[in-house]
Design a protein around this nucleic acid. Structure first.
Lengths: 106, 106
DNA sequence: TTCATTATTAACATATTTGTTAAATAATGG
DNA sequence: CCATTATTTAACAAATATGTTAATAATGAA
């Protein structure tokens, strides 16, 4: 797991998922419009956006003093695949364990 | 996300996944046998096991001075379901975004 | 130019996670 | 009862994550 994926997966998931969710639902938005939805300060949002940018999950575009952000499909696909692999691991674990228990019982 | 799920999902995933994986693959194991596989000290393993126990992912059984650990199917199912819901979110995000982009292009 | 708006960076504080070593606890065998 | 083994807890250190306020760009308008 890369530091960025780990970072994305970790504590502030809710804030960052909310940011991405807003960008998906409402399309391109300036940084300032994302703060209210996340209930944290501008600088905090700005740093989340930086992480999301570096992780390839959002893109930034300048419009005067504003910075317009959008969700990035390639990034979302990467996350979906990562969660897929993780789900696969746990599903597999469960299957293997249940098989082992059945053998034990037999 | 509960603190325990968050804790489980967070940084030490690899260590804790390795522990659970060993318990699934090799069946019931004493705490001491899990340390080598994880490349950390006994006390560190012990604390991971405590987290896993509290999260309901493993069970503990006394055998003399040893503590035998096993993977717990209900816990694995819970994790599998949690990753499933997460995967669902990201898959859905991707679908929605791609649909939005198609509309834009049209 | 000067001011207002928008966003980012700097400096700092705090909580959480995770590891280590040393001490404590529990069980077993002389 | 004492020594040994297995494990956990205590005390401490370090890294990471995340938030805040204040300072610093960058832009556009008066």
């Amino acid at each position: 797991m890369t530091p960025l994926l780990r970072s994305f997966a970790a504590l502030s998931d809710e804030t960052r998922m909310s940011i991405v969710d807003q960008l998906i639902t409402q399309g391109e938005l300036p940084a300032g419009d994302l703060a209210p939805g996340a209930a944290i300060s501008g600088p905090a949002i700005s740093r989340h956006l930086k992480v999301l940018r570096e992780a390839g999950l959002v893109t930034q575009r300048a419009d005067g003093a504003r910075r317009l952000y959008s969700a990035r499909p390639e990034g979302l696909r990467m996350i979906a695949e990562w969660t897929q692999s993780r789900k696969g691991f746990w599903d597999g674990s469960l299957d293997r364990l249940e098989a082992a228990l059945r053998e034990d019982g037999a």
